[in-house]
């Protein structure tokens, strides 16, 4: 049989497996090498005519001046302090580890100690209406109302859900302008609305772990703005939920994440007169600020406020309290850190 001779290209066509593998490998090497060369040496700038890149979000620093760093009171020790509130010239700090409240004066000295008359069990949140203190005593399942001298006025035992498997564990408390008391129940994933006497008005949440507008996954700290809107730290959903004064879902701030503008483990919340939302994050060791419509405004708590990469002042920031233009951050290990915020009032 007269075979047609191979053409020049046909002769080079591989006709067994090994050269094929080599060819594929060579192709892969070429492509990979090209990519690497492009990345390393950037032979041309394909973004030549692109708009200038916006500032990286993590470079956003919210204007705040550090005023005080009180690792420990001058005359006392606290263990894992959880939150603070100011009233009557004192800063009342919850010493969660020792189960007591310490009243700290402006020079950092503890002039009040609740432990002679009160036994608290991991108090996690404190609020005030200026005349009284409201303390979420988490393991006791109670909210205590004290006068500013520390005398107990009332202990509100919180009701559990009908089919509750877990004890009520209040870790957030706030007082609305109309006198209603708001309490978060971490174990049962709900927020309780109580009247001024402590009677239950309504509950918000699904009584189980939930998300979206349906409920919370470990509701934590609470605060109320001047209009009575309620802000709830929704710990494991990585957000702060805003509720209307009647408890209707309005919107949320942040989402679960590890980057600027997201939240890993939100702990404390405060709202200023302009509606800006301040959230402490225990895992990111930061206080993040959001505009009323949810835009990320920057971070508070850098060692060098002008340099976002200069490290954190915090170790485990938790409770937040805003008094005028002064922000009080209670850090579980670093103690009390206060900032002045221009234009916050």
């Amino acid at each position: 049989m007269n075979k047609r001779p191979y053409g020049p290209f046909e002769r080079q066509r591989p006709n067994d497996g090994q050269p094929t593998v080599l060819l594929v490998l060579a192709g892969a090497l070429l492509i990979g090498g090209g990519l690497l060369a492009g990345i390393l040496f950037k032979p041309f700038d394909w973004q030549d005519n692109a708009a200038p890149a916006p500032a990286r979000v993590s470079e956003l620093v919210y204007p705040a001046a550090t005023e005080l760093e009180l690792t420990l009171p001058a005359n006392e020790e606290w263990l894992l302090p959880s939150a603070a509130a100011t009233a009557g010239g004192l800063t009342f700090v919850l010493d969660a580890g020792h189960g007591r409240i310490l009243g700290i004066d402006s020079s950092g000295v503890a002039t009040y100690d609740s432990s002679s008359g009160l036994e608290l069990h991991q108090p996690m949140a404190i609020a005030t209406d200026g005349r009284r203190l409201f303390v979420a005593d988490s393991l006791a399942g109670q909210v205590l109302i004290l006068d500013l001298a520390g005398r107990l006025e009332k202990a509100i035992r919180l009701p559990g859900p009908v089919a509750a498997e877990e004890e009520v564990r209040p870790i957030g408390v706030a007082v609305a302008p109309d006198g209603r008391i708001l309490v978060s129940d971490a174990s049962n994933h709900r927020v309780l609305f109580l009247d001024g006497d402590g009677s239950l008005l309504k509950t918000v949440g699904a009584d189980r772990r939930a998300e979206g507008s349906e409920g919370f996954n470990v509701p934590g700290a609470l605060t109320v703005d001047a209009r009575g809107n309620v802000y709830v730290v929704d710990t494991l959903n990585g957000r702060v939920v805003k509720l209307s004064p009647d408890g209707e879902f309005i919107r949320d701030y942040g989402r679960l994440g590890g980057t600027a503008g997201t939240l890993s483990r939100p702990k404390g919340v405060a709202v200023d007169g302009a509606g800006r939302v301040f959230v402490s994050d225990g895992l990111l060791a930061a206080v993040e600020v959001f505009s009323p419509d949810g835009a990320y405004l920057g971070v508070i708590g850098r060692r060098d406020p002008a340099n976002p990469t200069s490290g954190s002042l915090f170790q485990a920031p938790a409770g937040l309290w805003l008094d005028g233009d002064r922000l009080y951050v209670t850090d579980r290990f670093a103690g009390l850190v206060t900032f002045s915020l221009p234009g916050a009032d």
Binding site: S58, L256, G257, G258, T259, T309, G311, S312
Partner: peptide, 21 residues
């Protein structure tokens, strides 16, 4: 998984290391 293995936002800048110290 997602509550501990927190999804990284590919578009975002890491705020800081999770170990501040």
């Amino acid at each position: 998984c997602v509550y501990c293995h927190i999804p990284r936002d590919a578009q975002g800048e890491l705020l800081y290391a999770r170990d501040p110290n």
